[in-house]
Simulated scan of single mutants.
Amino acid sequence: MSDDVRDSLIPYDEIVQDALRAVVGRVLSQVEGTDSLPGEHHFYITFKTQAPGVDIPAHLVAKFPDEMTIVLQNRFWDLTVEEDHFSVGLSFNQTPSTLIIPYAAITAFVDPSVDFGLQFQVSDDGAAEPEPHDEADNDRPEVSTEDGSNVVTVDFGKKR
C-alpha cells in the first residue's frame, strides 16, 4: 500500500458533521415544549456568533465576537427546534433575549451530567483554533472531560 493519500471526491467529513449536528437537533427536540430539562441533564452549547443564520442580540455579539457558550438547564423558554436551527429564550443580566442558532454554527454540545459531548470542526481550511472566550452570563464554569468520557471529536484534517 502506498503512503500517498488521495483526496476523496466524496465529502465524508461534511456528511459526518451534518449527521452529528442532527444528533443535537434530536436531543433538543426531546425537551422542546418544556422550560427545564429532566433530572440533572443540562446542555452546554458553543456556537460561532457570526456564522450565517445566527441571530442574537448585538450586545452579545459585541461581548462574544467569535464564539459563545450558552447553558440550557433551568431557566430557558420557547425552545423551538427546526430542521436546520433552533431558537431559545434566555436571560442575560436579567434581560430576556431570543437566540436563533443554526446547527451548522455549533462547535460543541456537552451534557456533563452524563459525560456526553460532541465537538465539531468549523472549517477545514487549516484555520487556527478559536481563541478562548468568556462564557455567557447564564453559563456555569467550563466542564472538563477526562479520559474514558463519552466525548466524540470529529476531525477530518487532511494528511499531507
Rank of each mutant, 00 (worst) to 15 (best):
S36C: 12
T46L: 02
S91D: 13
F76S: 03
T49N: 10
T95H: 13
F120W: 07
D66T: 14
I70F: 03
L60M: 10
I56T: 03
K63V: 05
H59N: 14
A62D: 15
Y103N: 00
Y44A: 12
L72H: 04
R75V: 13
S113K: 04
F64N: 09
D84F: 10
E40T: 15
A51M: 07
K48L: 13
K48R: 15
M68K: 03
V110G: 00
A108K: 12
F64M: 05
L99E: 04
A104T: 15
K48V: 12
I101S: 05
E67A: 05
L99Q: 08
S29W: 06
A58R: 15
H41L: 13
W77Q: 15
N93R: 14
I56S: 04
I45G: 04
E67Y: 03
T49F: 09
I56K: 06
G33I: 07
L72Y: 00
I106C: 00
P65H: 02
V81P: 04
V61P: 00
S36K: 14
F76A: 05
Q73S: 13
L37R: 03
I100D: 05
R75K: 14
G39Y: 11
S113F: 08
T80D: 12
F116Y: 14
V54I: 10
A58F: 11
A51K: 10
K48N: 09
Q30F: 09
P96G: 05
P112A: 06
H42C: 02
P52K: 14
F92L: 07
H59G: 02
F116A: 12
I106Q: 04
E40Y: 09
Q119E: 15
V61C: 02
V54G: 02
V71N: 07
F120K: 07
T46N: 00
W77F: 14
S29Y: 04
M68Q: 13
T46K: 01
G89A: 08
D35Y: 03
L72E: 01
E32N: 03
A108H: 10
G53P: 11
S36F: 09
E32P: 01
Q94P: 00
F109W: 08
G117D: 08
L118V: 05
V114D: 08
P65L: 02
K63H: 12
F43N: 04
S29D: 13
V71T: 12
A51C: 06
D78R: 09
D78G: 02
H59Q: 13
A62N: 15
G39T: 12
P57K: 10
L28A: 08
M68I: 12
L60K: 02
E67P: 00
D35P: 00
P102S: 12
S113D: 14
I70H: 05
E32R: 04
T80F: 03
T69K: 02
Q73T: 09
F86Y: 14
D35C: 02
T95C: 07
F64I: 05
